[in-house]
Simulated assay, not measured.
Amino acid sequence: MNSSADTSKIPVKNIYYMLAYAWDHPHESRMIDVYGEDEKDIINLLSKILILKVRSLIKRGFYREYTPVREESGVIRGKVLFKESFEKFSYKKGKMHIKHEEFTDDILHNQLIKATLLRLSMYEHLEKEYYEDLKRMLMYFRSISRIELKPKFFNQVTLHRNNQHYRFILNICQFISENVLLHEGSGESAFNDFSRDHMKMARLFENFVKNFYRREHPESNARSETLDWGAIGEKNEYLPLMHTDISMIVENQKYIIDTKFYQHGLLEFKGKEIIRSGHLYQLYAYLENDRRKRNGDKAVGILLYPRVYQSFHFNYEIQGFHMKICSVDLAENWRDIERRLKGILSKADALNINN
């Protein structure tokens, strides 16, 4: 994974589809019709989707959990805290300090959603209709405590079978928490343009491609893989780790895919365009170490770039390894992007080395 592509040509709706795959919720890209939408930015599009999802959540009912409560009460329930009760002379008031559990919807899951809706309501470029929807929706969160929206809180949320329907909503909330920044003291927030952050877009591109193939080929076990250098020496800990972006097996053929997020996939050298040598060396190192690990079985190597200024698809046989250097146009219709990614793995293409 590398970064420096111009992302200005990628439609907002295509960024959303990539996010849906990267979050491992590709079905959400099909359930919500965003074709024909022309939102001003990804935050407005995600606001629309979040409103639809939270509206459905309200109809279903908020998820509740038992949470510990400590209080001074005249009604004895749960565990009596004698030490606190005597230290604070609660017994003189006919009360005791107690500890018990309360079944409540005022939990972190719902608090984060409320905090996100509040943050969006302060976004200065939010469409008016979404602002009005948020105001009405917040009325259902009156019993939910208000917390500060911090990305670290999302790591504290526990998701399981009974609350899996919160996962996609919280993915959207986390994205918003990381990209809609509150102006101190102004009561307004602005969008930190995610699409112009090349490192974030490079990670998104890698995770999108990985989860796309994982969904299209469930048996492939598409994943990042650590390869061994096979080095012998006293200071092997100084060697860098060798991680593939994507390793997978489809129809008994292993593929190693390295995603590169560059404005120009090809490099201009002495008046002509050539493949970037560093990328080719890196892919060859993956293939050679994988061959040694698998006792001679050879993977197909793919360098995959987003198309910006040129499209290309090259096939080579290099040192006995089949390598492909390809681009995918992220500005195309989404169905064309899907067909392109599927076609890259076609066996007919793999046999057509000379084209």
Rank of each mutant, 00 (worst) to 15 (best):
L303A: 00
K135C: 09
Y284S: 00
L283Y: 06
S346T: 14
I51C: 04
V180E: 09
A299K: 11
E178D: 12
K13T: 05
I49C: 11
R64F: 10
E71Y: 02
T7G: 05
K128Y: 09
S85T: 11
Q263A: 13
R340H: 13
Y305I: 08
D258T: 03
R276N: 10
H217E: 08
E65I: 11
R64C: 08
E225F: 06
L341T: 05
V300Q: 03
Y17S: 10
N352K: 13
S47M: 08
S186H: 01
Y63W: 10
P306N: 04
S277Q: 14
K210N: 00
K298H: 09
S247M: 09
F62N: 04
S73K: 11
I169W: 12
E84V: 07
K235C: 00
F194Y: 07
Q111G: 02
Y284A: 02
Y284E: 02
K59E: 11
E216D: 03
F314T: 09
S73G: 07
L280P: 02
E124V: 07
A22Y: 01
P26I: 05
K92R: 14
L266P: 01
L283I: 08
N354R: 14
V157K: 08
D133C: 05
K92Q: 14
N333E: 15
L280Q: 05
T116M: 07
S143E: 15
E39T: 11
Q310S: 15
N110I: 03
F269K: 02
K88A: 07
A350N: 12
K13D: 06
W229Y: 03
H243K: 13
K114S: 02
L52W: 14
L112S: 12
N155L: 01
A5S: 14
N236G: 06
K260L: 09
E102R: 10
E338F: 00
A22N: 09
S224W: 00
I58H: 14
F141N: 05
I325W: 06
K210Y: 05
N295L: 14
I15S: 10
I249M: 15
K88T: 15
I144Q: 03
K298A: 08
K88M: 02
R55A: 08
K9G: 12
R70P: 08
F141L: 02
P68C: 00
L81E: 15
E216V: 01
R167Y: 01
V54L: 04
N221K: 15
F103A: 04
Y284D: 04
F103V: 01
W23C: 01
K93G: 09
L126K: 04
L112D: 12
I113P: 04
L181V: 13
L170Q: 04
H279V: 06
E65A: 15
K150P: 10
K150F: 10
H160Q: 02
A299L: 04
E273N: 08
T226V: 10
I275P: 00
Y286H: 08
Q282G: 08
H279I: 01
V300E: 09
C173V: 07
Q310K: 14
K347M: 14
N44T: 13
E332A: 11
I147Q: 04
G187I: 07
I232W: 07
I249K: 13
N207W: 06
N355H: 15
A20G: 09
K254A: 12
Q310A: 14
Q253I: 15
F261E: 04
I249A: 12
R276A: 05
R30M: 15
F269W: 12
E127R: 15
H25K: 10
I15A: 09
E225L: 11
R70M: 13
